[in-house]
Simulated assay, not measured.
Amino acid sequence: MSVLMELSMFPLSGGESKSADVAQIIKLIEKSGFPYKLTAMSTVVETKTMKEALQLLEEAYLQLEENDRIYACAKFDIRASRVDGMHQKIASVQAKVDVPIKS
């Protein structure tokens, strides 16, 4: 099974830059051992179960809960018959186009 979770989470208070807050969550994800990819707009994490994904989402929230207001957006792609979905999905699209996909 593959659960891909796309996650954006940061406090609305504070200054303009949110990179320090995002870094806290990235450290948590890194420590979890789950594969992930940080992008300019969000982070994609792959877990084997929905329970693992939701637990990681809650732990990310707990990193920021001291803030008065937190923005969070999570999207899921859950597929029972897939393994290594982060790479498999990109490879599937790559096989159908004539140019390299930029990452």
Score class of each variant (00 low, 15 high):
residue 1 M to T: 04
residue 2 S to R: 10
residue 2 S to A: 09
residue 3 V to M: 02
residue 4 L to A: 01
residue 4 L to I: 08
residue 6 E to F: 03
residue 7 L to P: 04
residue 12 L to V: 08
residue 14 G to H: 05
residue 16 E to H: 01
residue 18 K to N: 01
residue 19 S to A: 13
residue 19 S to F: 10
residue 20 A to D: 11
residue 21 D to L: 09
residue 23 A to R: 08
residue 24 Q to E: 12
residue 27 K to T: 10
residue 28 L to N: 05
residue 29 I to M: 06
residue 31 K to T: 11
residue 31 K to V: 07
residue 33 G to A: 06
residue 34 F to Q: 07
residue 34 F to P: 02
residue 34 F to T: 00
residue 35 P to N: 02
residue 35 P to I: 00
residue 36 Y to I: 05
residue 37 K to T: 06
residue 37 K to D: 00
residue 38 L to W: 01
residue 40 A to K: 13
residue 43 T to W: 00
residue 47 T to L: 04
residue 48 K to F: 00
residue 49 T to M: 01
residue 54 L to R: 07
residue 54 L to M: 14
residue 55 Q to M: 08
residue 55 Q to I: 13
residue 56 L to P: 01
residue 58 E to C: 13
residue 58 E to F: 12
residue 59 E to K: 15
residue 62 L to I: 01
residue 62 L to T: 07
residue 64 L to S: 03
residue 64 L to I: 06
residue 65 E to V: 14
residue 65 E to I: 14
residue 66 E to S: 14
residue 67 N to H: 15
residue 67 N to E: 09
residue 68 D to T: 09
residue 70 I to K: 08
residue 72 A to T: 12
residue 72 A to K: 02
residue 72 A to G: 08
residue 75 K to N: 11
residue 75 K to D: 07
residue 75 K to H: 03
residue 75 K to V: 03
residue 76 F to W: 07
residue 77 D to A: 13
residue 78 I to W: 10
residue 78 I to V: 15
residue 81 S to R: 05
residue 82 R to T: 09
residue 82 R to A: 12
residue 84 D to W: 06
residue 84 D to P: 04
residue 85 G to K: 10
residue 87 H to K: 15
residue 89 K to I: 13
residue 91 A to N: 08
residue 92 S to A: 15
residue 94 Q to H: 02
residue 95 A to W: 08
residue 96 K to P: 00
residue 96 K to H: 10
residue 97 V to L: 11
residue 98 D to G: 15
residue 98 D to Y: 01
residue 98 D to C: 04
residue 99 V to Y: 14
residue 100 P to Y: 05
residue 100 P to H: 07
residue 101 I to R: 03
residue 101 I to E: 09
residue 102 K to A: 13
